[in-house]
Design a protein around this nucleic acid. Structure first.
Ligand code: MN
Ligand code: MN
Ligand code: MN
Ligand code: MN
Lengths: 229, 229
DNA sequence: ACTGTTTTTTAGCTTTGGCTAATTCTAAAT
DNA sequence: ATTTAGAATTAGCCAAAGCTAAAAAACAGT
């Protein structure tokens, strides 16, 4: 009796590790410590999981030098990211969640839904390209838009831009930005980017100007205008 | 440091056992063998889980004599049944699943969603009282409508009834009934219930009559008319 | 090249939830 | 009252995923 070809799905732990490595490993390998912190797990557990992930063919791992995704690891990561972002979109747009609440729920649901569910949900949502934080949603085939947005601290004064995403771990900062109407999709004019104190001054479509200190400006990512939100 | 009072949620295994015992244990206790079959698990695993469930306070268990739910076990079971039936309703009404597909997806999602999600989904769905199979959806407080429907084989000729649910393990039978428009909510007149061959003849609201052999008639449950679907 | 700090790995344990095989109990039939 | 078939339990495994504490490697600074 040959092993029938069903290849049982990866556990949610495995999925979260792969996603963490993807998130971190921008360039090069993700370190044991980084992953441990990201997942609130001991470094020892990560060491252990790195060798298991390698056996599963999801990462390449050299002892003492971190892990980086293989092609099949990247595919798995993007599958989860797609689910996660679609689910967040649904929770926000149809169930009345707010931006802060969606993540925790999506973090669990991403492991429980099937591919079939995911595609029907995408259909239901009208095949959105960005999630509520402004992050691009990977396509079914694992394609992901090349990232070309920059934090406001690196924008050029005088350009017209659109907020692509807002990213910060600190809830008060997100709340403040949301209260000011600085949310993904919003078009802005960059009036001034001041080197000496990091303050960035922008004007929104209602003509209102906002002065953002460096911590705020660093959290607001923008793309030069033209493209849709 | 006292154990803070968070009481981590039950695992999905524990949940499925409790639900199985609830499903079965109509009256009295559910047997090891029944539960094992229901969950596709070995009897030894069930024996083992019965003692763990008892320690968690979810069942009462007497060695060699099955397990029955405690109050807190029943609460947990009904919480899951509520989630399950709401999720099935959503999949069917909004994501374009068909009656056959919903169950498997709901069986996984019921363990992944939060109470908050469940109540927002109920809101989104307009607080339905019945799921797509016609089964009543338990209330948040664990209340469940008393079951007062009977299979067509036990209906009285001459009464006006409404289909409450359609229940059978056989897909072709369900398909046939659905194709004939005999789905939950449909009003019918019972024209004849023939003892000798078990055939039941009904007339639907379009004046069309249907003759159902015993296997079909046994699968269609009805309530005397008046009440909503 | 040495030394101290930080990071990573190893060793050894734990819990959860499965399994098979062997044993024991219950209940029905003689 | 025995026997026996079927159901349930026990004993002894396993894998997944976590943990702590101890050992080892890498890295940085002198
Ligand atoms: Mn998120
Ligand atoms: Mn997750
Ligand atoms: Mn179901
Ligand atoms: Mn389930």
């Amino acid at each position: 009796m040959t092993d029938s070809v069903v290849s049982k799905p990866f556990s949610s732990s495995v999925g979260d590790y792969v996603k963490a490595i993807w998130d971190l490993g921008g360039t090069g390998a993700a370190s044991t410590k980084e992953v441990a912190e990201r997942l609130s797990v001991s470094p020892a557990s990560v060491s252990n999981m790195f060798v298991r992930l390698q056996e599963m063919g999801l990462v390449r791992h050299e002892r003492y030098h971190g892990a980086s995704l293989t092609d099949s690891g990247r595919v798995e990561a993007l599958r989860l990211v797609r689910r996660h972002r679609l689910i967040e979109t649904f929770l926000l747009e149809h169930l009345g969640y707010n931006r802060q609440e969606v993540h925790e729920e999506a973090e669990r649901l991403e492991h429980a839904v099937s591919d079939g569910f995911t595609e029907r949900l995408a259909e239901f949502l009208g095949h959105p390209e960005y999630d509520p934080h402004g992050e691009p949603i990977p396509a079914t085939d694992g394609t992901l838009e090349v990232e070309n947005s920059v934090p406001l601290t690196e924008a050029r004064a005088g350009t017209r831009v659109r907020i692509s995403k807002v990213r910060n771990d600190d809830a008060p900062i997100l709340d403040h930005l949301e209260d000011s109407g600085l949310v993904p999709g919003r078009p802005l004019s960059v009036l001034q980017v001041r080197e000496l104190d990091g303050v960035v001054i922008v004007e929104d479509e209602d003509g209102k100007t906002h002065a953002l200190g460096e911590p705020l400006a660093r959290s607001v990512f923008v793309r030069e205008a033209l493209g849709g939100a």
